[in-house]
Write a protein that binds this DNA or RNA. Structure first.
Lengths: 152, 152
DNA sequence: GGCAGATAGTAAGGAGATCTGATTATATGG
DNA sequence: CCATATAATCAGATCTCCTTACTATCTGCC
């Protein structure tokens, strides 16, 4: 477990890939007329998947701070794509759901995501893709919690 | 090649991983007294590897715009970690090399990179790590050039 | 019931990475 | 020797994300 590290650090490789994919996704979103940024699109897709969750839970699931999510939701709500409704059980909390106008936008987003996936995994067998995916998720599991918070 | 896409888009997974690793690397760099940001550290590591290259070539290799690199080099040069010397064959160009002061800083950077790699790949066999690395690099090859520049 | 402390959301502000477009100096081909 | 291309940089913008502090509300305990 050292041969690989010498070639190019895994963190930089992942960072490069993220930059490349983000760039493509940005251009595609600009090409569609969604008017969304990458993170807004991601947020919308998360709201679709976790409809009715409160913001804190959603932010946690997304791995970002509640305040960061709040900004994205502000813009999505202003665009009429999501709705914040008060939690009947807790007046502090708001439950996030999709607005009807989100449907066609999400369709475009899904199309673009599929396209990028095809580009990124071109030439991959289904097994390769599955293996890659499994390895990435293991890595995510290693990193997502229990972070180095004792550093501060 | 569709089962995986339904779970979580590969682009967002890569983006999440990049965010997680960047965060850890940031904290570690702050913990060391390098005073560098993640991108500056990456730039320094690239200069180490591609010593004597001109900025355009370096930016190209790093997958960023020359102007972006220029900013990082400004700060690294101000910190006395790299040197810009004029290319004797082309007075427009500058060749980037390490300054002597970079040596201990690079050592710290390498240590932190190794630590992050260990965290990220904890529990991975060497074969898994190699496989992951190979798959990621294939993906990088698919994306790094021939991008969707016809979109604009 | 009523307060102490936790929790949900947000306002304010900032840092970092990255881009685009314009500018200057230099090189190079015809 | 000029037209065009290239190397680096200036100016300015966007996007993502964070920290800190504040308000409203909830919950457990006396």
């Amino acid at each position: 477990m050292k041969s690989v590290a010498a070639t190019r650090p895994i963190g930089f490789l992942i960072g490069d890939l993220a930059r490349l994919m983000r760039r493509r996704f940005e251009r595609r979103l600009a090409g569609s007329d969604t008017g969304l940024t990458v993170s807004e699109a991601r947020t919308l897709a998360m709201v679709e998947h976790y409809s009715g969750w409160r913001q804190t839970a959603l932010a946690d699931r997304m791995g970002i701070e509640p305040m960061t999510l709040s900004g994205f939701l502000d813009r999505l709500e202003a665009a009429g794509l999501v709705v914040r409704k008060p939690d009947p059980n807790d007046r502090r909390a708001k439950l996030i759901t999709l607005a009807p106008a989100a449907t066609p936008v999400l369709e475009r987003i899904h199309e673009e995501m599929v396209a990028i996936r095809l580009e990124a995994l071109e030439g991959f067998s289904e097994e390769d893709a599955d293996r890659l995916y499994a390895l990435l998720q293991r890595m995510h599991g290693n990193l997502c919690c229990c972070g180095p918070e004792e550093l501060s």
